[in-house]
Design a protein around this nucleic acid. Sequence first.
DNA 1: CGGTGCCTTGAACACAATCAAGTATGGTGG
DNA 2: CCACCATACTTGATTGTGTTCAAGGCACCG
Lengths: 229, 229
Amino acid sequence: MDTPHKYLQNKGIAASSSFGEIKSLLAFAQPLFTLRKKTTLITDGEKFRGLYFVHSGLLKQSQLKKSSENEIITHFFFSGDLIGLDALCESHYCGSIVSIETCGLSLIKFHDIEDLPITKETHIKLLKILSKSMRTEHTRLWRTLSQSSDSRLAYFFITMSHKFSKQGYSSNSFRLPMSRQEIANYLCMASETVSRIVSRFENEGLLAANGHEYFILNPEGLADIAEKA
Amino acid sequence: MDTPHKYLQNKGIAASSSFGEIKSLLAFAQPLFTLRKKTTLITDGEKFRGLYFVHSGLLKQSQLKKSSENEIITHFFFSGDLIGLDALCESHYCGSIVSIETCGLSLIKFHDIEDLPITKETHIKLLKILSKSMRTEHTRLWRTLSQSSDSRLAYFFITMSHKFSKQGYSSNSFRLPMSRQEIANYLCMASETVSRIVSRFENEGLLAANGHEYFILNPEGLADIAEKA
DNA sequence: CGGTGCCTTGAACACAATCAAGTATGGTGG
DNA sequence: CCACCATACTTGATTGTGTTCAAGGCACCG
């Protein structure tokens, strides 16, 4: 299939990895460059030209919904993530990728994975990362599909918390550069719903939010909500 | 709404293929055996012992929801499908697999894909089937997530229609052995909703249903509903 | 100050789940 | 073959969650 004109056709597999896992790949990366906030890196259906490694910043991958200006955000790319893994086996990127804040990126340029003089081990590692990412994303979709809004949002905060924790930052106090609207689009709900639930979570003493700064006050409480419907 | 588990963790990637694609694998298949209807083939978490090829019949892969006897059906396996691809990279099956009607199956027995003396081409073909299945399933999840019940069900019938058509059967008249409840569980909705929508589709002249027999009367009309939100 | 964009909050609505009968259907034993 | 029961399906009424529509607040920036 060529271009995903049927807008739900190629969904953009969430594809992230840790720095350690792909350092052999990074040897082929071109120099770091800066992408200003709200700038398009990749437009939907563009020809594959390589993977991007995110050194810093945050980007979103999204699909436009037909018949509405609403977007579906299929993935956020944090620093340490690889962009474009979902296009590896295809010849085109899927979904547009836009920076949310200023980003530092480097391109690992190639048109076919065969072109890279990497070892078989790296190749396999890449496939495993891809496979794992697909599973992770699959799990996320199932959660989003079958849980209440409360659970989804609670799970979102827990996931973010884990993410920062794994990178050595505080797991209970972090900044999320994306807007409420973008969180909503990621979780398939209305931004008003996100607002309301965040307010409720605050009243219940689960977390505190100040603009884009979030403080998790009761991780166990959040986990409970994330696990129950 | 009730609760999915933490073992919504490994979701069972939908994994099907066409006969032609895997005939080299089938050389390793053990003799065909029969599984009576409503019989468990695989229980959740069981150790991987190989792939099953479905010669005839229909099976479902499902996860049990915590705190309710409701199941989430993650996949239907029709004749021609391979069961267990989602466990290939793991050591355990995920989700239980139960026959819906009497099935003819054969086991392609192995514990590790390396054990099979298959060619590299077959190996790659297998990976591609897996990758494609994951994508297909991913698309399905997105659709289920972001579309109305009407669209989901319309899309379901269209998918079934395509499936039968590809196998050389009529695309507009077919029998679906699964119950309304099972269709509902597959599409993440209540069985009453399935009933109501089928009735409505019948009133609108889109299809006719008689028990498990379905006749698609207006494919374009169904496609319209499937495509709009 | 007066924008503009983002967020919050309220009210009304809609869709689908749940609860509750009631109606076919199919299998079993007499 | 029929009577019976269990199960599946349909249909209606009610409820609840989350969306949509609408208005107001707050902060950042000229």
